[in-house]
Design a binder for these strands. Structure first.
Length: 278
DNA sequence: CATTACCTGCAA
DNA sequence: TTGCAGGTAATG
């Protein structure tokens, strides 16, 4: 469920609640496979550690602990994290919780159980970082870098945008929305895009993600921030989940196809398909 | 490369 | 009952 804007919103909303807190210990774990290392080691390693920073890399939420450890949490499809009173850990889909030194708990609620909680040392964190492409909102991400990532790639641009090794943090919603904004057909081979298309796509990606962060992300079903609040970006979708509705630009009916095994929404009139040059 | 698997719940 | 959901890892 959460993509870059949602994870960023969670990180920001947890910062005031977690910064400087000390983890007392593991309060709940009823789905062991989400955890790494396994529970006994994990519990011994996190107990007594202070939370020194809260950040994000790609769709991973990163809690920097003392001693060089990082708690890396991935929400996958249905996870949400929040800080709440201890009895909130009894809710039906809470599979993991940590006791904090102020009597509250960091609670991981995850209906579909795809989420992950990994305790990483410095090397593990470096591996996680190296597995992902550039952060699209960072200074270092430029149109030239995007062009380089797409060069010679014959896969559909939609599939490439979802590939975390190329660009970090884009998921199904924002890939659809960015391609609509840039007026690019989702099946266009990435390497077929000319420099001006790439410049448009670059701006579209940054605008879409920044706007979504400003609106605290998209809450379609499970997504909530670290206080349990919904986002509002879902009220601003132009194409996502809008099959048969009129394109906001040209009124043509939005179509749904499947690309990279994911629902893909686009306007067949104003999103241009570029053929691979022969 | 594209399928399939991992899970649960909800709407068609 | 089937298909689908904001994601990725593991298979052929």
């Amino acid at each position: 469920m959460p993509e870059l804007p949602e994870v960023e919103t969670v990180a920001r909303s947890l910062e005031q609640q977690l910064l400087g807190r000390t983890i007392v210990g593991l309060a709940k774990l009823d789905w062991p496979r989400m955890l790494m290392p396994p529970a006994p080691d994990f519990a011994a390693l996190v107990a007594g550690r202070r939370i020194e920073a809260i950040g994000r890399r790609a769709k991973w939420l990163l809690l920097t602990l003392d001693g060089g450890w990082t708690l890396a949490i991935h929400l996958r499809m249905s996870g949400h994290l929040l800080v709440a009173e201890p009895d909130a850990a009894n809710a039906p889909h809470v599979h993991f919780a940590l006791d904090l030194d102020n009597g509250r708990r960091l609670i991981f609620d995850d209906q579909r159980k795809f989420g992950r909680v990994h305790l990483l040392d410095r090397h593990g964190l470096a591996m996680l970082d190296a597995a992902h492409g550039p952060e699209p909102l960072a200074e270092a991400f430029t149109p030239a870098l995007l062009a380089e990532q797409l060069r010679n790639r014959r896969a559909p641009i939609k599939a490439l945008l979802l590939d975390q090794r190329l660009i970090a943090g884009i998921g199904n919603i924002y890939a659809n929305e960015a391609l609509w904004l840039a007026r690019i057909h989702p099946l266009t081979p990435g390497g077929a895009l000319a420099a001006d298309h790439i410049a448009e796509l670059y701006r579209a990606i940054r605008n879409v993600l920044a706007e979504a962060i400003a609106n605290q992300g998209s809450s379609l079903r499970n997504y909530r921030d670290g206080y349990g609040r919904r986002g509002s970006q879902q009220e601003h979708f132009n194409v996502y989940d809008r099959a048969h509705e009129p394109c906001p630009r040209c009124q043509t009916a939005i179509e749904r196809i499947v690309v990279a095994q994911r629902s893909t929404y686009f306007c067949p009139q104003c999103q241009l398909f570029v053929r691979w040059p022969t």
